[in-house]
């Protein structure tokens, strides 16, 4: 019984939140990695693109709520999602045409693109703040829980409860669907193959008649859609605050690099690696150990490896470890 209690405690506070968080990071990292594979730079504006898209979703959600539209147990934000994606795609394409295209035509160094993306980051940041301000916004509605703590206790007869929030379940389902679609697109469609060819060898791709501008456009469309989906899921799961999205940049980059930057499957794996390590390292294991260990060995402290405030340190440490041991990442992305 104690073992089961410990397991439920661990599932409830580590595995379930970390899986949802990992799915969000995976989607974010997938966007970053696609941009990296095709445009060959680390997009510092990705976090703020997520914030902008999520802001659109929040606004549309509020509009729908005021009209009385709802999805029943599901959050209304899912209805608003396509509109948010469309708006963000427009923004990304306008940005590309007005900022990045110029440097592409000049074949500038990647670091110039990075600096340009810093400028874009400022602009996106300002746009988001103009419209919605800097405060926390909650836009989750519908049923809050799929599995409730009390129900689970009654059903299982255990002391510890297990809760699965609707947003967590939706996060995982949407993430699986999205990733499956992206992989199908990259592997099976003509355009996806063109993208991969362009990423592997630009000159050869050009020789085979692949239009670079089209490839870049599709990449931005995918990255923007992924950013909005990731941002909305994160906002549903926690809450929407523009600055938090900027801070997500670090774990997202870490995830992309851990998996092998420029490698889509790696980005997804990296997202989960980062999320699980972050949650596991910052979780206080006192409760779990109390169930598992005999009375005499029970810990006095919290048995927490790092305070939760240090969660960014975890992404960074993973980043450094990967850099030192295997700079190309788990899936051998581009050599960096």
């Amino acid at each position: 019984m104690d073992v089961l209690n410990a397991l439920v405690l661990f599932l409830n506070f580590v595995m379930i939140p970390a899986t949802a968080y990992g799915a969000q990071l995976a989607l974010g990292a997938l966007g970053v990695t696609l941009i990296y594979a095709v445009l060959r730079f680390s997009n510092f504006a990705h976090g703020d693109m997520m914030a902008f898209g999520t802001m659109l979703v929040v606004l549309v959600t509020w509009g729908l709520q005021s009209l009385g539209v709802s999805l029943g147990p599901l959050p209304t934000a899912l209805l608003a999602l396509p509109i948010g994606i469309l708006g963000t795609i427009v923004l990304a394409l306008v940005t590309d045409a007005s900022v990045y295209r110029f440097y592409r035509s000049k074949r500038s160094e990647p670091v110039i693109f990075v600096i340009a993306s810093v400028g874009v980051m400022f602009v996106y940041n300002a746009l988001t703040r103009f419209v919605i301000g800097t405060d926390d916004q909650r836009f989750e509605d519908g049923a809050r829980f799929v599995v409730k703590v009390g129900d689970f206790r009654k059903w299982s007869g255990l002391d510890e409860g297990l809760a699965i929030r609707t947003s967590q379940l939706i996060t995982v389902v949407v993430m699986i669907l999205t990733v499956a679609f992206v992989f199908w697109f990259l592997q099976k469609t003509r355009t996806g193959k063109a993208m991969r060819a362009y990423s592997d060898n630009e000159d050869l791709a050009l020789l085979s008649g692949i239009s670079p501008e089209r490839v870049v456009r599709i990449t931005w469309i995918l990255a923007a859609a992924l950013a909005v989906i990731a941002g909305t899921l994160y906002g549903l799961d926690k809450s929407f605050r523009p600055f938090t999205y900027f801070q997500l940049l670090l774990p997202i980059f870490a995830a992309a690099i851990v998996g092998g930057i420029g490698h889509p499957l790696g980005a997804v794996a990296g997202g989960f690696v980062v999320a699980y390590s972050e949650v596991m390292v910052t979780y206080a294991y006192k409760g779990v150990l109390t169930y598992l260990l005999p009375e005499a060995w029970r810990p006095e402290g919290l048995v927490q490896m790092l305070g939760t405030d240090y969660k960014f340190a975890v992404s960074f440490i993973i980043l450094v470890v990967v850099l030192l041991i295997r700079p190309t990442g788990i899936f051998r992305g581009r050599t960096i």
Partner: peptide
């Protein structure tokens, strides 16, 4: 390593120092 890498690593170290 590549130039972007330094950018990401420094972004991280700044957050850690602040934490």
């Amino acid at each position: 390593l590549r130039s972007d890498y330094l950018a990401i690593a420094t972004l991280g170290i700044a957050e850690i120092i602040l934490a």
